[in-house]
Design a protein around this nucleic acid. Structure first.
Lengths: 114, 114
DNA sequence: GTACATAGTATCATAAGACGTACTATTAAA
DNA sequence: TTTAATAGTACGTCTTATGATACTATGTAC
């Protein structure tokens, strides 16, 4: 894990979190890794809308920031497995709250539509 | 509150939440409104880095999405007060989790720096 | 010796987000 | 009659984020 010292300069823990989860697909990727390790190809097939290069980039950022572990098997054809680290697993608590609130919010606006 | 039906089409509550909190200053604004109503000028002075037009825009989006209430007093010079709505207050739970996790994460990388 | 599979890279194009500066309406007070 | 204060708007610019397409390495199976 490469430490990004500039994150500490933000000063506010919320700002740190916001910075790390920024990126259109990062939350979805973490969510997909929630229960088990996944190979690169599995993630790609699970997210057909996302271009391969961008998936790689997002995964590398998650790895750099220490949420995701990347395990390379030295075989041909290549095999790489992604999984959540401890701090990545603890990030799921944030996502659970986001889920709860998002559900509540959705119900609210559904009612307004009636 | 203007209902954004496209949010419901996202399908995933986390995606809904992510969509609503997107925007560089929205979380900070909600945080500033956490305890009490604030006038526009107070927010502006609290956030000198943010340009006035952009602050207005972020506030309008928060109002549109129902997190923030905007109360206009019909006086001169103008007076406008911003406060959190019920669903906005409940959003603070998400932010609290972000705070906790961000703190934990910051401690982790501080230790790595040693 | 050709094709296939995986996990990528490289390059360019476009769209979205954020920024800077300048401008407005209104009335009360100087 | 000019100035000050508040809460904005209206541009144009610039940067960052995301998207599309094409290309690479390597060993195994055919």
């Amino acid at each position: 894990m490469e430490v990004r010292k500039e994150l500490l300069e933000i000063g506010c823990p919320i700002g740190v979190t916001q910075n790390i989860m920024a990126g259109k697909w990062k939350l979805v990727i973490v969510w997909l890794l929630k229960d088990d390790t996944k190979r690169f190809g599995e993630l790609r097939r699970a997210l057909p809308q996302i271009r391969q290069g961008y998936l790689t980039q997002q995964l590398r950022e998650l790895e750099r920031d220490g949420l995701v572990h990347r395990k390379v098997y030295n075989v041909v054809p290549p095999k790489v497995e992604y999984s959540l680290t401890d701090i990545g697993i603890r990030f799921l608590e944030v996502m659970n709250k986001m889920y709860e609130w998002g559900e509540e919010y959705s119900n609210l606006i559904k009612n307004l539509c009636k």
